[in-house]
Each structure stands twice: as C-alpha cells, then as structure tokens.
Design a protein around this nucleic acid. Structure first.
Length: 154
DNA sequence: GCCAACGTTGGC
DNA sequence: GCCAACGTTGGC
C-alpha cells in the first residue's frame, strides 16, 4: 500500500500550521468545493499533506501533516450558526466531508517566490495561475522536492 | 442545458 | 483593497 501525497491550503490568519501543532490534530472542515471534497474523500490514513498558507504575506509552505482520520460528514454543513452552513445538504445524504489531519513537522517557511524556483514544480498545479483549488494531490516527486528544499534552507 | 450574474479565492 | 480567474446558481 502506497502513501499518497496532497496539498491543502489554509489562511494562516484563520488557521495556521502552528495552530495545527498547538491543537495536536484537527478536522479539516469547511471545504465547500466538490473537487476539493473529492480529494478529501480520497485521503487515506498515513497519507502526507503539505500545508500551504494562502492569502498570507508572503504565501508559501509552512509544514507537513498526515491523515489521522479518514473522511466523515462535516457537521458544520448542518449548523445554521456556522459560516459553512449549507441549507441544501441533507443528513441522509451529506454533501460535504472533512478529514482528520495531524502535524508531522514544521518546515522552514518556503515562500511562493522560492517554490517557483523548484524545478520539479514547473508545470505543477500548485504554481498554475488561477489555481483556486484548496485540496489537491501532489506527486511524490513534487512532495519530496518541496520538503527537500525546505531542509536545505537556513 | 445554456449562460449571465454572482460569489469566492488568492496573489499582488 | 483590487481584480482576474474560476465555480456555482438560477432563470429561461
């Protein structure tokens, strides 16, 4: 059984990699895009996940997480008080899923400018202009190139 | 099932 | 805060 690799985006003002470390784990909820949801559903325990800070100054890669719980219905879709409430979702057939993530290691922050210089990421989804998808797969080559670059810094 | 309007994302 | 790119919605 092979491990798959993924990238998730988060706005650090809302939830940062360090918040994940502080909490020890979290349910990655609030995803409201079907493609991203399908990726969450495809994640398996033990998969490795790059945590990317978007809408940040600067944006970039902050750390590595792992899947510690496979997908379940995201309860926030049924919570009328939640910003993620989806009145069209029915309990018999929940629309949205969440997946459990736990921290593995914080990386030396790799800003987007530097990500652009990683040869293995040329043509990758991560660097594609207009890529708004918040959860997507990385190849093992892409994943390892990111981690390796972070480790050759400082 | 088309497509215009609208909302959101995310780099700058 | 701007705005381009993209996804979703809803009228027809």
């Amino acid at each position: 059984m092979t491990r798959n690799h993924w990238l998730v985006k988060t706005e650090p003002d809302v939830f940062s990699y360090r918040d994940l470390e502080r909490l020890g784990r979290t349910d990655w909820d609030g995803v409201r895009n079907y493609q991203a949801r399908n990726h969450l559903r495809a994640m398996r325990k033990g998969d490795l996940v790059i945590v990317y800070h978007s809408n940040a100054e600067p944006p970039g890669v902050a750390g590595v997480a792992t899947v510690d719980a496979e997908h379940e219905p995201d309860p926030s879709q049924f919570d009328a008080g939640s910003p993620y409430f989806d009145p069209r979702s029915r309990r018999e057939d929940p629309r949205w899923s969440m997946t459990g993530l736990a921290p593995v290691e914080e990386l030396d922050f790799l800003p987007l400018d530097e990500l652009r210089t990683i040869r293995e990421l040329t043509g990758s989804r991560l660097l594609a202009p207009g890529n708004r998808l918040s959860v997507f797969p990385l190849s093992v080559v892409e994943f390892e190139a990111i981690v390796a670059r972070a480790k050759t810094r400082s």
